[in-house]
């Protein structure tokens, strides 16, 4: 019985969808545009994420050790740092490694090479290179180092030189994230309103039918259900249409973006996440379609 009712409801929804071909075409098109906008927002978020990550990865803090610090001291500081959950990674550059790197960097410069040969001892300092899990955490990491028991063995912490830069990058990152979220929200609201109004117009077209169904004694849910199915169908078809257009468009644009931002592949990102992106688009399409139908039809069911 329930199965039969459900079958009728789906059939009626499908018939509405199929038989009003102009309206169906228009509504599906508008809804597809809305979903394309959503996919565009995902792409914008992807790019701003790449940008912020790139900026943040350029930030670090180095601690230069006095030459009398032993390897053991350095390892102790490294271990203590790694215990902090604000620290993402600690990389140790020993005095020898620093010297080797210095020699290599200045291999062409005979004056430097000769001066180094004159020296009895390695003049370079060992250093610890620290990356925080979040650029906002550098200040706390530095204050931890300031109070560390081996502080006397540390010569210089370059945070103070980089402080202004780190602060600026951090502000840019959070601004990009906040504006991204705000824009996403704003556009999402506009998208919902557009989708809602389109479907509402479609249903107002069918006001006459709804009135008749009521007069024949259709219960409100029985009348409403086919329109919800119709709304869901707009959503599904619009999602498929939007996905096809999006992937074709992204494939065309992606190589050009890679020229400007090397190593960034838009299409790679979207193909890598095809299933979640597809499901999200279909889900949003269905929810938009059904919700708009629900609200639109409510008005005609009052009498």
């Amino acid at each position: 019985m329930l199965k039969e009712k459900l079958g009728r409801v789906i059939q009626a929804g499908w018939n509405n969808f199929r038989r009003n071909s102009y309206v169906t075409f228009g509504t599906t098109g508008v809804l597809a545009l809305v979903l394309l906008l959503m996919l565009g927002l995902i792409a914008v978020n992807f790019f701003s994420g790449v940008l912020v990550d790139a900026l943040e990865s350029k930030v670090d803090v180095s601690v230069y050790m006095k030459t009398n610090a032993t390897d053991q001291d350095i390892q102790t500081i490294k271990r203590d740092l790694e215990k902090l959950n604000t620290v993402a990674s600690v990389f140790v550059v020993t005095r020898e490694a620093a010297l080797a790197e210095f020699r290599e960097r200045h291999a062409q410069d005979t004056l430097i090479q000769e001066s180094l040969a004159e020296l009895q001892d390695n003049p370079l300092q060992a250093s610890l290179n620290i990356k925080a899990s979040d650029p906002g955490q550098y200040a706390t990491i530095v204050s931890f180092l300031e109070t560390h028991k081996l502080r006397p063995l540390m010569d210089k912490i370059n945070y103070y030189e980089n402080e202004a830069l780190i602060g600026r990058i951090q502000r840019i990152s959070s601004t990009v994230r906040d504006w991204g979220a705000l824009n996403t929200l704003l556009l999402a609201v506009i998208a919902v309103l557009v989708a809602f109004n389109t479907i509402r117009l479609t249903i107002i077209n069918q006001k006459h039918e709804i009135e008749i169904m009521r007069l024949v004694g259709g219960s409100n849910w029985y009348i409403r259900a086919p329109y919800l199915v119709e709304g869901a169908l707009y959503g599904i078809f619009a999602a498929v249409l939007a996905i096809i257009i999006w992937y074709i468009g992204a494939s065309a644009v992606s190589p050009k973006i890679a020229l400007v931002m090397p190593g960034v592949s838009l299409i790679g990102y979207f193909f890598g996440n095809f299933i979640p992106v597809f499901l999200l688009t279909v889900f949003v399409g269905i929810v938009l379609g059904m919700f708009s139908s629900f609200i639109a039809i409510r008005k005609f069911l009052r009498i």
């Binding site: 009521r214 007069l215 024949v216 004694g217 259709g218 219960s219 409100n220 029985y222």
Partner: peptide
């Protein structure tokens, strides 16, 4: 009640 109106209308042909 609103839910009973359809039941009334099913008794009537219009």
């Amino acid at each position: 009640s609103r839910a009973d109106i359809p039941l009334l209308r099913r008794k009537i042909g219009t």
